[in-house]
Structures are given as structure tokens and as C-alpha cells.
């Protein structure tokens, strides 16, 4: 890999950008992700996760076994909004105007 190698295909993030994030103090995959968008695309870091861990290891000396993978969140693969929705009415999801009547927030 040279510094122009694309590490995250979804967001087109190259090795150089990842090194810049590490130089700012990033020590984990998720630190790098939030600074660069690496791993935020459709594959959700399935491709770049280990590549980034290797780069962090190479740059900081933190051992690979201490470098956690990215934080996985649902959905594991793309899902249509209407498939996720269950068409009940919301009760934990509030409305902005309702809040303004109650004051604050």
C-alpha cells in the first residue's frame, strides 16, 4: 500500500487521510471513522476494518489484538425503510412542536 491507496472503497478514503487522522490522536477504528468517514458507507466497514487496524498498528505500535474492530450497528446489510417500519404509532419518538409546548430541550 502506498499513501494514495484507497482503503475505504465506499467513501473513497486513502491511506494518507487515515494517517492524518492518526496524527491527530486517533487510536481506534471508530476514531478514524469519525474524522474521515472511512467505513461509513454502504458496506459499513466490512472491507476496510482490518486494513485500518493494520495502519493504526503500523503508525502507533498498538498491538493488533488490542485494536477493536469497528462498532457494528444494525442493520447488518441494507434494509428498506418500509421493511423496518412496523406501522404502529410512535410513543418514544417525540415531536419537536410538542416539546416546545412543554418548554425546554
Amino acid at each position: 500500500m502506498d499513501n494514495s491507496t484507497i482503503v475505504c472503497r465506499c467513501e473513497e478514503i486513502n491511506k494518507d487521510e487515515i494517517i492524518t487522522a492518526i496524527q491527530l490522536g486517533a487510536e481506534t477504528f471508530d476514531d478514524v471513522k469519525r474524522l474521515t468517514r472511512c467505513g461509513m458507507g454502504p458496506c459499513q466497514s466490512k472491507i476496510c476494518s482490518n486494513l485500518v487496524r493494520e495502519i493504526i498498528h503500523e503508525q502507533t505500535g498498538i498491538s493488533l489484538c488490542q485494536l477493536k474492530p469497528s462498532r457494528m450497528r444494525a442493520p447488518l446489510r441494507l434494509i428498506r425503510m418500509k421493511t423496518l417500519a412496523d406501522h404502529r404509532t410512535a410513543n418514544k419518538v417525540a415531536s419537536v412542536l410538542q416539546d416546545s409546548e412543554e418548554g425546554g430541550v
Binding site: G41, R73, A74, R80, L84, A85, D86, K92
Partner: peptide, 27 residues
Amino acid sequence: VDVLQETANMAIHMVPSLANVNVVRCF
């Protein structure tokens, strides 16, 4: 899952065309 479902409900309730888009992630 319950809140994610309710959030999807809200999305479609406010902007119906969101029904047919893909969800990539939640946080």
C-alpha cells in the same frame, strides 16, 4: 429495535418517499 421501528414509522409518516430508500446504519 423498537425505537428503530418507531423512527422508521416517523420517517415515512413525515416524508412518505422515504419508505423506499435503504437504511445503511443506525447509531
